[in-house]
C-alpha cells in the first residue's frame, strides 16, 4: 500500500440515538476529521441512528449541546454521501420530511451492498 496518498472508502455506521449516549456526537467528530484526509466518506444511519437526523431537536431542557446542526454543515466539508435505511425509518414512523438534511434512502439490500464495497467500516 502506498504511503498516505491512497483513497479509501470509509463508512461510518450510526445505529445509536443521540443524547442517551455520547456515541453519535463522537462519531460525528471522527467524520469531520476523516473528511479532511480527502477520503471517500459515507455516513449511514440505521436503526435508532436515524433519530440523530430528526428535525427540531431542542436540548435546552437537558442542558446538553444540540449538535444536530453539525449534520447540515457536513456538506461544507465535502461529506455528501448520507444514506438512511428505509426499513429503519419506517419502523420509527419517520419519513425523509422529518430529517434535517437531504439523504439518500436505501433499502436494506442496497445498504448491505454499499457496506460490502467499503474498505473501512467504523461503528461506534
Amino acid at each position: 500500500m502506498s504511503e498516505g496518498n491512497s483513497i479509501k472508502k470509509f463508512m461510518f455506521v450510526n445505529r445509536k440515538a443521540p443524547y442517551g449516549t455520547i456515541y453519535a456526537l463522537e462519531s460525528l467528530e471522527v467524520v469531520l476529521i476523516t473528511a479532511a484526509f480527502d477520503q471517500d466518506v459515507s455516513l449511514v444511519f440505521l436503526d435508532d441512528g436515524v433519530y440523530q437526523l430528526k428535525k427540531g431537536q431542542q436540548t435546552k431542557g437537558i442542558e446538553t449541546k444540540n449538535f444536530s446542526p453539525a449534520y447540515r454543515a457536513l456538506e461544507g466539508y465535502d461529506v455528501e454521501k448520507l444514506y438512511v435505511e428505509k426499513e429503519s425509518l419506517e419502523a420509527r414512523g419517520l419519513s425523509e420530511a422529518d430529517l434535517l438534511v437531504d439523504v439518500t434512502v436505501l433499502s436494506c439490500k442496497e445498504m448491505g451492498e454499499l457496506m460490502n464495497q467499503q474498505d473501512v467500516v467504523l461503528s461506534f
Partner: peptide
C-alpha cells in the same frame, strides 16, 4: 488527535472495531 484513527484506516489492511 482523531486523525490517527483515520490514518490507521488508510495505512492498515483491516480495521476491526471493539465496543
Amino acid at each position: 488527535g482523531l486523525g490517527q484513527l483515520t490514518e490507521a484506516g488508510i495505512q492498515t489492511d483491516r480495521t476491526v472495531v471493539f465496543g
